[in-house]
Amino acid sequence: MSKRKVVALALLWALILILQGYWLFESQRMTRASAAARDEQATRGAQIYAQNCMVCHGPVGEGIIGPPLNREEFRAEGKTGIQVATIQDFLTKTIARGRPGFDRNTWQIEGGKIHSYTRMPTWATSDNGPLNEQQIRDLVTFLMYGDWKEPSKYAAAPEVARLTVTEYVTNPDTGQQEPRTRAVTAEDLDVKAAGLTDEENQEAKKLFVTMNCVQCHTLGSYGGVVGPNLTRAGEWLPSQEFVERWIANPQAFAPWERMPSVWHGQGTPVDLTETYRKEQDKFRSIMPAFENAMSPEQIRLLARFLMGLGDVENRNAAAAPGTTEGTGSQGQGQGGGA
């Protein structure tokens, strides 16, 4: 073989090796870039979840009024490409279009289970919702790939929680009105429970503030959004006994008895009892127990207060369609679930 051919062959192999190295480098770079972009989307999605979804689906996706979203069936890890695309399509359509039901939280006890007939609102701007296509993609990316510890970081943001009151007072030195911010007190909670005296209402609201319930739950015009809005809690909570047990020790409840395990909406009802049993450690409430912080009398008073909030006189008047057993109860509508 001539020297010229040897040089040409060597150059050819060098070019092949360079191209192969570049391809490997570029492939890895694209993979890293894709992962970084997905992480950014998931972070934005966690913020959107905290501001719009946490109040119904829970701070760690454990489910409260809406069903749990921190479920293995919604995660992309370990799934085939077709399965990932199917999950993405389902979540996108459900978030965009919502699910039918009552505008107020509607729970019924049927066959020993709590059923939910609560509507999930439409979220896509194309359906008069507040989220554009990019925001919905970010939210779906979070549900499929994100870290469920992230949403709680954004739960206390000023735009999603009202934990302070701004008042205008006269500055004695200047005579000018100046804003002053203070923490929410029992007097600020503009709700009143039926069946309680004025003194009992005031004492219950003091408990709500001193036990820091207001940090997580909205009551009237004030409160946090980590837990569900309790302004009309009496319209949907199952019973006095349930609420007393719940305040005393939420962790004592199995997931399938602490909230609805069956959701009605489009098509066949979704019963998550088996999902709860298989992944139950992810679905227990993060609410702390108060049995050692409050007396039984205080727990009973707070439970009576919550059961008296809202249109409790008509609590059992509206039955969900197609049901004949159980106790109908309606409450403030903030969404059902996927």
Rank of each mutant, 00 (worst) to 15 (best):
T31H: 08
Y222L: 05
D127Q: 06
A293H: 10
L9I: 14
V270N: 15
V226Q: 05
N201C: 07
A76D: 02
A10D: 04
L19F: 14
L15Q: 13
G335I: 03
E187N: 15
F74R: 00
R162T: 07
R300C: 05
I286W: 10
C213R: 03
K113F: 01
P321Y: 11
A96K: 00
P255G: 02
K282E: 02
G234C: 12
Y276D: 07
I299W: 00
A157F: 15
A35L: 11
T141G: 06
W13C: 14
L19P: 01
I136C: 01
N316A: 14
A161W: 02
K79N: 05
D127Y: 13
Q202K: 09
V140I: 00
R300Y: 02
A252F: 01
V160R: 15
R258A: 10
F142D: 01
R258G: 10
G129L: 05
Y154E: 05
E313W: 15
G336F: 00
E235L: 13
T86H: 12
R32S: 11
Q108R: 05
A85Q: 14
L91H: 01
V191A: 06
G45C: 06
L207H: 11
P255H: 03
P59K: 03
S329T: 09
P158Y: 08
R38C: 00
N229H: 08
I16A: 13
S126V: 11
C53A: 03
G223A: 08
H57I: 06
Q88L: 03
M307V: 13
A252M: 05
Q332F: 14
S34P: 04
T218K: 15
W256R: 14
I82R: 02
W123G: 00
T141C: 06
V60G: 04
P67L: 02
Y276T: 12
T185Y: 04
A338T: 06
I18V: 13
W256M: 12
D190Q: 09
A183G: 14
V140T: 03
A254T: 09
V312A: 08
L91D: 01
N52P: 06
L24F: 08
G111Q: 14
N201Q: 04
G146C: 15
R119Y: 01
Y154L: 12
V6Y: 05
K113W: 00
F74L: 07
G267A: 04
A338M: 07
D198R: 11
R315C: 11
W13D: 02
I64W: 00
E279W: 12
L15P: 00
T80A: 01
V262S: 08
N128Y: 14
P158G: 06
N70I: 10
A317W: 08
F102L: 08
F208M: 09
L301D: 04
E279Y: 12
L24D: 09
P130I: 04
G21P: 12
N171W: 05
S126M: 07
E203S: 01
K206L: 01
Q134T: 09
M211T: 09
P179Y: 08
G234Y: 12
V140C: 00
I136V: 13
W148Q: 11
A289L: 06
D147I: 05
Q330K: 11
